[in-house]
């Protein structure tokens, strides 16, 4: 019940156009470990239906920024809210509204999970404690797979799928919960040439058809640049640029560490 209520409030407030959905106010990391890059005094407001590109060199703090939004960063200074809900005190409600695809996620061959198992897990947070996934949940998961075009892979073991197929299954997993926000961490890495063309098209389609507010973290600005409405450049843990793609391109291209995928992989 609590979940439904919060979801409804979140969805109602979502109807207001141009409303700030994600709001980071003066956010800085407190502990700087080897696993997380620090971010310093980050201010970011994302409005409904925006498609934002977060670019910057490796270890600039892009992933940390995403993890702040879905409340995965355990402690930080400043304020972070999604749909007006504090990401730390309302972590579960916030996460149920966010579809998240982490960076470099690959399941090893032989792991005992089918693609459908993995997609269905995306709904687990919403199903609630002590409840098992219902037929409706399974139908939603299959629907998400159909949307991405991976429904034929449903019964295949996850570890036997190619990098591109796994990436699509992870995208379906993120969509299975019917999120309002999509957070994608380096969705173009680890892709075979076929998928490299398909994934950007898929993301654009999802953004347009489902009206998903989308944040894409990437070190490569060239993919989908024409589709995004806004580019945020992160460098050394700070936001150094926030504006249109046209203005961002010369800035990023001059940066020695931010290269195109083609340059990195070939």
């Amino acid at each position: 019940m609590v979940r439904l209520k919060t979801q409804n409030t979140a969805r109602q407030s979502n109807k207001t156009t141009n409303e700030a959905i994600i709001k980071l106010e003066d956010v800085s990391t407190v502990y700087e470990g080897a696993r997380r890059t620090a971010i310093k005094n980050v201010n970011l407001t994302v409005k409904r239906n925006e498609l934002v590109y977060v670019v910057g060199p490796n270890a600039a703090g892009k992933t940390t920024l995403l993890e702040t939004i879905n409340g995965m960063l355990p402690t930080f200074k400043g304020k972070a809210s999604v749909f007006g809900l504090n990401v730390q005190t309302h972590a579960r409600q916030v996460r149920c509204e966010i579809g998240y695809v982490p960076q470099d996620f690959m399941v090893k061959p032989g792991e005992p999970y089918t693609a459908l198992d993995v997609v269905l897990m995306g709904r687990y947070g919403q199903i609630g404690f002590l409840h098992h996934p219902s037929k409706a949940d399974k139908a939603e998961a299959l629907e998400a797979m159909k949307l991405i075009g991976v429904e034929t892979l449903a019964d295949r073991p996850m570890g036997k799928l190619s990098g591109g197929q796994q990436q699509k299954v992870m995208l379906a997993r993120a969509l299975a919960k019917n999120p309002r926000i999509l957070l994608l961490d380096e969705p173009f890495s680890n892709l075979d040439p076929d998928s490299r063309g398909q994934i950007p098209t898929l993301i654009t389609k999802l953004h347009q058809e489902k009206g998903l507010t989308t944040l894409i973290v990437t070190h490569d600005i060239h993919h989908m640049l024409d589709q995004c409405s806004r580019v945020v450049v992160v460098s050394g843990g700070r936001i150094t640029f926030d504006g249109t793609p046209e203005k961002a391109l010369p800035l990023v291209e001059n940066h020695p560490h931010t290269t195109s995928l083609e340059a990195t992989h070939h």
Binding site: C96, Y100, Y124, Q126
Partner: peptide, 21 residues
Amino acid sequence: FVWKELFAIMFNRKLAEADGI
């Protein structure tokens, strides 16, 4: 009773967290 949670955690703890568990 807690199979769903255990299954998701065994798959990947971080992702389970990200899905609200």
